[in-house]
Simulated assay, not measured.
Amino acid sequence: MFFSVIIPLYNRPQEIKELLETLVQQTYKHFEVLVIEDGSKLDAADIVKGFTDQLDLRYYVKENGGQGFARNYAFERAKGDYFIIFDSDCLIPPDYLQIVNDSLATHWLDAYGGPDAAHESFTPTQKAISYAMTSPFTTGGIRGNKKAIGGQFHPRSFNMGLSRAAWQKAGGFKITRLGEDIEYSIRIHSFGFKIGLIPEAKVYHKRRTNLAQFYKQIHFFGRARINIYKFFPDTLKLVHFFPAAFTVFLIFMILSNIFYPPLGIFFNIILALIIMLIFFHAWWKNKSLKIALLGVVASFIQLTAYGLGFMQDFWKRIVLKKQVPTL
């Protein structure tokens, strides 16, 4: 199997350096790398050039069009039998490509996704964010489970692969962000291609370096779920309303404490139980008191940011039926 590793890049020279360093260390060597500089103001040309004698590497520069269309640009130029997509803020374990090759040889998938985890070098905040994005109490762990709570497993584009045949049949990304990977996964599946999780094919995903950036990203994810609904209405499940329900719960808790304290006490007890559950689970997973505390904060940000983004576009695009430009 010859792999084409595709990496869209936007203003992240240091991140791409670290990612390429991990690709140099791959034990499976039959692959090429395509880096697509998507209109960056802070480009990585000099950094990427430093790896051309260590990797089968091509570097392209295009006008900014978003990550989905940057991947399409790479698909059209890739030579591989199978395309693998990474976000530029990922670190790849040295046996990743070997794991994928062996898995596809024994259990073929036309498209796959893999889980993400926190690397030991990550900051406590990054580890807490990683916990919030993989915890069963926030996302339901859907990014690393074969059986998603909301139904069919959908690969996420930070760690995703698809065969050349799937691309040729389904085409590339139709939207460039706002849930572009889930829309693409659903479309590939609609053509009868087999999609699944390779649990061992994990990457270390940095995500955001601070909680303010994390909030902004997750708010965008909440909006993206409504964008996916506009393409595939039957994919909106009850579980997708959970962050919004949690956000409404917090609002009612605050109001009840102000206007009707007896009811506020009841809400406070529920909230305390939720905090304890997340705290002890994060502590058990990370073996760190600091990360556990930050994990509670990150989990609340994950739930409320997603909930607010979801409610914002649900109200605008579904209730009011406003036309919002598709990204």
Rank of each mutant, 00 (worst) to 15 (best):
Y204C: 08
H189V: 10
F220P: 02
T235Q: 12
R164V: 01
F191Q: 15
A170L: 02
G151K: 10
H205E: 05
E200F: 08
K147D: 14
Y184W: 09
I195A: 11
V248A: 15
V239D: 13
D234S: 15
R187H: 12
D181C: 03
I182W: 07
I188C: 04
I182P: 03
R208S: 14
G222Q: 02
K194L: 00
Y184C: 04
A166H: 00
F191H: 11
F214K: 05
S185C: 12
I228M: 11
Y229K: 06
N145C: 07
A244W: 14
Y229W: 07
N227R: 10
F193L: 00
D181Y: 05
T235G: 03
D234M: 08
P243V: 06
E183G: 03
G161N: 00
A245D: 05
P233M: 01
S190D: 13
I195N: 01
T247M: 13
R164Q: 00
K237D: 03
G144W: 06
Y184K: 10
T235H: 11
F193M: 00
Q152W: 09
S163H: 00
R143Q: 12
G172D: 02
L197I: 09
F231T: 03
F220M: 13
A245Y: 10
D181H: 11
A170R: 01
K206N: 09
I142V: 15
F242Q: 10
